[in-house]
Design a protein around this nucleic acid. Sequence first.
DNA 1: CTGAAAGCGCTTACAG
DNA 2: CTGAAAGCGCTTACAG
Lengths: 362, 362
Amino acid sequence: MREHRKKPNVVDVAKAAGVSIATVSRSFNAPDTVRDNVRTRVIEIASRLGYSPNPAAKALRLQKTNMMGAVIPTLDYAFFARLVNSFQEALSRAGHIAIVITTGFDNRHLFEKVQLLVEHGAEGLLLVGRIEDVKLRDYLVEKQIPIVTTYSYQADEVFPSIGFDNYAATQQLVRYLLGMGHSEITMIAGRTAGNDRQEARVHAFRDTMAAAGLGKTAHVIEKPYVQALSEGAEAMRRIDAEYPGTTAVVCNNDVFAVSVIAECRKRGICVPEDLSVTGFDDLDLASVLDPQLTTIAVPSRDMGVRAAEALLNAVLHRREILSVRLETSLVARASTAAPSKARAAMAKRRKNESGKRGISDR
Amino acid sequence: MREHRKKPNVVDVAKAAGVSIATVSRSFNAPDTVRDNVRTRVIEIASRLGYSPNPAAKALRLQKTNMMGAVIPTLDYAFFARLVNSFQEALSRAGHIAIVITTGFDNRHLFEKVQLLVEHGAEGLLLVGRIEDVKLRDYLVEKQIPIVTTYSYQADEVFPSIGFDNYAATQQLVRYLLGMGHSEITMIAGRTAGNDRQEARVHAFRDTMAAAGLGKTAHVIEKPYVQALSEGAEAMRRIDAEYPGTTAVVCNNDVFAVSVIAECRKRGICVPEDLSVTGFDDLDLASVLDPQLTTIAVPSRDMGVRAAEALLNAVLHRREILSVRLETSLVARASTAAPSKARAAMAKRRKNESGKRGISDR
DNA sequence: CTGAAAGCGCTTACAG
DNA sequence: CTGAAAGCGCTTACAG
C-alpha cells in the first residue's frame, strides 16, 4: 500500500489552515508578524501534513543556497578528512552545509569538479593548493565566487589562501637533521607535477642541503600519494639499493613514514639507530607508533574552520577574504637521532665515491 | 575595480544571441533539437558571458536536486571517511553530489541533522546504524525519502540496511581466541547507549564466552569513541588493575587496539606473548603496525558504493531499496597468539579467586 | 526548428 | 495582522 503522496507545499498548508500562503510563509520565517493563535495553528497543521519548505524554491527566491563546496584530493587520507570535518562542522554551526567532491589526486579534472559543485549550488569554495589551471582561474574570477585555497600559504596570489609555508617547514626539518649530524638524506616526496606543496618541499630540501655543502648527498624519490602505505616501503627498498649511505629519510607525509618504518623493521634496520625517519602532518597515529614519529604538525583543523568562516563572511557580509599564514611546528620524537658512527662512516665513504662518479639526482 | 556584475541568466544569453530563452535552454539540454549554427552561437555567447544555469531554478523546475545526503558520526575516524569517500565517488560518477554532515557521535541531534540535509535538498539519505529515534522514524516514513542505513545489517526493519552482522563477526573473533586457549578476555567497547553495533558486539562477546563456560571471565569496558587513541590506553590501564588475569583484549575498533598496544609497550607487556590484542575494521594501518593487527575486515568501501547505487536507483528509477548483508572476515595477524603458560596460570588463579568472591561484570 | 507562455514553490513589498 | 500578486530562473508542452 505504498501510495505516492505528493509532498505538501505552502498551498496545501494554507488551504488546510484557512489562511493565505503568505501567512504560512510568515508563520515560519517571521513568526512575530503573525497572530499567535494563527501561527500556532499553521505550524500545527504544517507538521501534521509533513510539510517542509522546498529547498529549491526557497533558494531561488532568496538567491541563497546556504551551501559551500569543498574539492579535495581524497577523504582516505586522514589529513584531508580532518580538514573537511572541521570545515563542515564550522559551516553547520552557521546553518550552512558542505558539499564535497574528491579529485583522487588527479587535478586534470579539477575544473569539472569545481563546475559540478557550482552547478549544484555551492556559494563558496574550499580548494586545496595553488590553482594552476588557467581556464579554471579565469572561470573563478569571471564567476566571482568566493574561494579560498588551503594548505599552502601564498602571498601575491589572485585567490586568498589559508595555509602554511611548506618551504619553511621542510627547511626547519632538514636543518634539525643536519644539526644532529646527518649528511646524506633522502626525501620521499609526493608527485611534484602540478603540486605546489610538494614542489616547495623539494626545493626547500635541495636548497638547505646545498647551503650546507651537501647538494650531492641530497636525494629525492618521487612517489604517488595513493597507496602511500605501500609506496613508502617501495621507496625504502630503493633507498637501500641506490642510496645506502642515507642516514635520514624525510617523508613528505606521515603515511610514507609509517610505511618506511615498517619496511625497516622487516629488513632489520633499526629506527632511529641505523636510520632516522621523519614524517609530515602529525596525524594522530604519529604519536602511538613505535618509535614515535618526528614530524611537522600542521594546523589542518584550523584551516578548515578558518576557511569556513572566511567563506561565510564573504557570502553573508560581503567581506573580503584575507590570506592567512598559519604556523607549523616541528615535533621532535623518537624516530630521529644522531647517525651512528658506522653509518656515518659508510655515508662518508659513499659520498666520496659518488663524488668521483659524479652522480647527481637532478 | 570590483564591480559586482549580476550573474547572467537565460534572458541575458537569449538577448545577446537574438533568440528566445527556450532556444537557449534547448541548446544545452536538447542540443539536437536546435539548428547547428544557432546552437553553436548560443553556446559560444553563453560561455563568453560566463553563463551557467541557476541550480535552484533548475531544481525547482525539474523537481530534482541531484544531491544525496550522508550523516555520519565523524570524518576523523578512517572507517567513516572511507565510507563517505566511496559513497561520494559513486554518486559523482552519476552526476550527483554528496552533502555531508556529522553528529560527533551524539545521536541526540540526529533528527536535526537529517532535517538540515533534507532542507538543503537531499533526495536520499545514507545513515549509520539503526535509527532509534521514533520521531525521526516517523518523519522519514512520512516524507518517503529513500534512505539506507549502513554498517549494521538488520532484517525485519522498516528501513533497508546495507551492512554486516556485528554479532557474527565478534562471535567469530571470540571463538578464534578461545580456540587458541584464552579463557579470560576483556572487551573494550564503544558506548552502547543508542548504538546497536556496539550492543550486538557486547552481546556476542558475552554469549560466546558464556557458551564456553567462561561467563565469569568475560569483562567489558565501555569507552567513548572520541579520542579513541587515548581511551584505549586508559582502558588498558584499567585492565591491568582490575582484570590482571586477562590474556586477550578484544577492541571494538582498530584505533583502540593501536592505543592498547602502545600502552602495553610502555608497560613492558609483550604483544602477543603476554597479551593478545584484536581490533575491528581493518584500517590500512592495521597491517603496518608492530605487531600487525589481528582484526575484522569490514567492507566499508563496498557499503558506500552500494548505498550510493541503491539511492540512485530509488530516486532515478523508483526502484525499491533492498537490504544487503555483506560479509566480514577475520584477518589473523601477529597480535594474537596462544596465552603463555605463566599468564594462563595466573588467569586460572584469578578466575578461582573471583569465583570465590563472586565478582561479576554485569 | 523556434517561440510564447505556463508553472515549479517559495518570500516579500505593497496595500489594506 | 493578513492577503493578492509579482517574480526568482529555469524547462517543456503546445502551437506554429
